[in-house]
Design a protein around this nucleic acid. Sequence first.
DNA 1: TAAGATTTGTTCGTATGTATC
DNA 2: GGATACATACGAACAAATCTT
Lengths: 252, 252
Amino acid sequence: MSGQTRLDQSRRSRPAHVAEAIKDWVVDKGLQPGDRLPGEAELIARFAMSKGTIREAMRMLQAQGLVVTKTGPGGGTFVGRVSKDRARALLANYFYFQQISIDDIYQVRIALEPELAASLAGRLTAAQIAELETIMETYAEPAPDADTERAQHVASLRFHARLAEFGANALLSFFIGFMAQILTDLTVYRRLYAEPNHELWREGRDHHLRLVRALREGDADAARAVMADHMRMARLRMGDQETVVMKRFIAE
Amino acid sequence: MSGQTRLDQSRRSRPAHVAEAIKDWVVDKGLQPGDRLPGEAELIARFAMSKGTIREAMRMLQAQGLVVTKTGPGGGTFVGRVSKDRARALLANYFYFQQISIDDIYQVRIALEPELAASLAGRLTAAQIAELETIMETYAEPAPDADTERAQHVASLRFHARLAEFGANALLSFFIGFMAQILTDLTVYRRLYAEPNHELWREGRDHHLRLVRALREGDADAARAVMADHMRMARLRMGDQETVVMKRFIAE
DNA sequence: TAAGATTTGTTCGTATGTATC
DNA sequence: GGATACATACGAACAAATCTT
């Protein structure tokens, strides 16, 4: 009889309904990333719907990063782990029509990053410390021109993003990484920094140096304090700029 | 033949390619929510692709909350503002396969909510204060049973979510609301609280009362301190529970 | 109320592309 | 290189929703 999932009691379109059903089915079955979903033919039979409808449903899941498809023998649709980049892009879409200022971002950074720094003190591996120091080499010397300074700023944002990834808290890590991504995009697509400022450069670099030292020595309070200073300074540095609203779809 | 847009130099599927192109087009044109996109027929002509492919592309955009479609005359596809709920659901998908503990959530809440409270002191309207007080009525009296206590906890989470929405910082508001949503789901779908505890209830209620008073009186430091206490207490309250990982697709 | 117009929604048959064996 | 298995894409027809007259 093929339990034909009772033609839409909702007002949702059929593909959306099918997509939700498949999502629920994946959760119920406890499928893991990489596990294979039924092929098109089987889904067509199971839901008693046409190929087109099933395919549209799959596209919806694909757009959310929940599945990936491969052609050819052994191919098909597989459960996918939503990537960090995709999650960031999807969330950025939400903020596309929201008013967000640089200062809004810094209000959150000031609250989160010192806490992160404190929680990481004494918990980084030698390799992780080394990676941070490698990133810092990018801005070991003052930038001679605006382009170089932009590259340095992107690198210093990467420093923060990597630091967040070193922590065990995936939620905190994502939030911080998301903000770093926004600031990176703003830096790349707009010229957020007018001209190199050696004084500010020195101050920022010193903060990173002192932060790494505190992290290595396991001094949580110092790490928190340095990061707090660092964020406050960066906020002022941005404060010169108008409260630019961020408006952009980040590419997937 | 037929000018076909140069068969995908990328390895992306055609619908994904079309979806990105439309997204870029919307950004370029500066279209706003409610603006109408070209109809199916025109897109078929413009991209030289079949109806099915165009529709799959639209479904991808729809799944991301970027467009909505309506049938009938005057219908079509329209630019849509990504809703808060959808953004939360899409982000929750990312965390489905990530390890997130209650304590992770509280580490972030402890960092963010006091900052929010301080920034809101003296800035709430009478109507907003009144709304908070209405919510608080839900848990004005101790809960007689576990179900009631659960409802009270959901209400108190709504208190926090609303408070965040009253702020001007959409980023901060979203992060806090997202965490409140996760905790609400955990409360509803699992029994996060074993049995009513009058002592904890009184303490939580008092925190909210004192917080509202500080907000009304414009005492930022007091608001921050009360919220910090409140969060620390709540963290301990949850600490009794195992560090339950959150694993669930939140429904759209 | 009813009919017609407009636009998306759905189906089916067929053909093509792609990766594995 | 050919057979196989699978997703991908196309096109024509029909269905449903909804606005206008």
